[in-house]
């Protein structure tokens, strides 16, 4: 038994029939073809699959696609508008906040949410806010620097 869902992803409407158990992350990656969000674990720890659902950062591996029916989804692919990077993306680039890049899409969206809620976070608040996103390459320091730089750029 499948269910009809309609979702708006990065501003575009989509309609699909999905199995109830289809995870949102597999829906985005395999059905819609948005492979920016990644899968790094199965226990909701690593955050590589982070996307925004109705403006809230969520782990797309811990949500069924049917739960997203009718909702607005933003993935990393939709973050740059009119070919211009989001200030968080730009800061990640400038500050060398990524190496292998696998955690980066999730990390950027988590950082974006963090800054939406706290435009001028302390280093401690940044580190706490990014606890749900693992990075094995950078040691986080450049990521923290990037979030601070983005905050400054966004006038926080």
């Amino acid at each position: 038994m499948t269910h009809a869902i309609t979702v708006t992803i990065n501003g575009k409407p989509y309609a699909h029939q999905v199995e109830p158990r289809l995870l949102l992350i597999h829906y985005l990656r395999d059905v819609v073809g948005l492979t920016g969000p990644h899968i790094g674990c199965e226990t909701s720890i690593c955050g590589a699959c982070t996307v925004m659902v109705d403006g809230k950062a969520v782990k797309a591996c811990t949500m069924f696609a049917v739960q997203a029916d009718g909702r607005q989804i933003l993935t990393i692919e939709g973050l740059a508008t009119d070919g211009r990077y989001d200030p968080v993306q730009e800061a990640f680039w400038n500050e060398h906040a990524l190496q292998c890049g696998f955690c980066t899409p999730g990390m950027i969206l988590a950082a974006k949410q963090l800054l939406e809620r706290n435009p001028n976070p302390t280093e401690e608040e940044i580190r706490h806010g990014l606890e749900g996103n693992l990075c094995r390459c950078t040691g986080y320091q450049h990521i923290v620097n990037a979030v601070r730089a983005a905050a400054a750029r966004m006038g926080g």
Binding site: L34, T35, G36, P37, T75, I76, E77, L79, A80, Y85, Q89, F92, W93, L98, G101, T104, P105, I108
Partner: peptide
Amino acid sequence: EDPRLITGT
């Protein structure tokens, strides 16, 4: 290498 990585492409 970063532009493709920060845009998920």
